[in-house]
């Protein structure tokens, strides 16, 4: 479903990603791990055109989306979350979700003036969808709170929910459980499995090993800008090179 071919990126002569090849098949949960500075988040930024890439190609659904503008990639069904949640902090929780609804007529300038009835109906459906998502996340009680007032874990959950509201076919999650309370971690893992059951595909960056090992079908291990190895969790865990990479052995 997602295929990366030889992605490369350097910042002022310093190569951060040196040729990353990776493939995620439809319905898979794939982990992307590696020590700090391995280039994992940069890969996400390259996939979504948050950064321009130096070389390589990105295929989504057998379509070459290399260099597409960020919003077009999201519209194609590939949606990301951020390592540090980037919520709309001064919007309420439910508005954070509602704004993410895809392809809303009410977001077109002329429709606001010309088609008020249609927009009102669309908003009703959109709000219903948002409540559904809040229930899925167990956040109905904070619906009208400002996003800025949420705890770290709730922010992560809300960002996941917001990405879901965009009706993606595949999600790129950047450390979905970093800084999240243990009880919530199981919750998030559980939600991700439910979503996969509904047909979503995942590529997940995470440092929390027990979480990512239990969740992933397969894992890619990155170190120093390259894919070091790929395999099922037990294979990766047994790989001496992975241990070396984490321990800093050259």
């Amino acid at each position: 479903m997602l295929r990366l071919e030889a992605l490369a990126k350097s910042f002022g002569g310093f190569a951060v990603v040196k040729g990353c090849d990776l493939e995620v098949r439809e319905g898979e949960i794939v982990g992307l791990i590696g020590p700090n500075g391995a280039g994992k988040t940069t890969v996400f930024n390259l996939i979504t055109s948050a950064l321009p890439l130096d070389a390589g190609r990105v295929w989504f659904d057998d379509r070459d989306i290399t260099g597409f503008p960020t919003h077009r990639i999201a519209q194609a069904g590939l949606v990301r979350t951020f390592q540090v949640p980037r919520l709309f902090e001064r919007l309420s929780v439910i508005e954070n979700l509602m704004v993410a609804g895809p392809n809303q007529r009410g977001e077109r300038f002329w429709s606001v003036w010309l088609r008020p009835g249609e927009i009102a109906r669309e908003e009703k459906r959109n709000e219903e969808q948002a409540w559904e998502t809040l229930r899925f996340l167990g956040m109905e009680r904070v619906a009208n709170d400002l996003a800025a007032t949420l705890s770290g874990g709730q922010k992560k959950l809300l960002e996941l929910g917001r990405a879901l509201m965009a009706r993606p076919r595949m999600l790129l999650l950047d450390e979905p459980v970093a800084g999240v309370a243990p009880r919530l971690i199981d919750e998030i893992a559980d939600r991700i499995r439910v979503l996969r059951g509904r047909g979503l595909t995942f590529l997940v960056i995470e440092h929390k090993m027990d979480f990512i090992m239990a969740l992933s079908d397969r894992l890619y291990v990155m170190a120093d800008g390259r894919v070091l190895t790929e395999g099922r969790p037990e294979e990766v865990q047994a790989d001496q090179r992975v241990l070396d990479a984490y321990l800093g052995v050259a």
Binding site: A74, L87, F88, N96, V99
Partner: peptide, 17 residues
């Protein structure tokens, strides 16, 4: 609502399409 979303985080708004 999109305008205020952009105010709070243009990058997140872009990432949502």
């Amino acid at each position: 609502r999109v305008l205020r979303a952009i105010r709070d985080s243009a990058e997140a708004a872009r990432s949502l399409g």
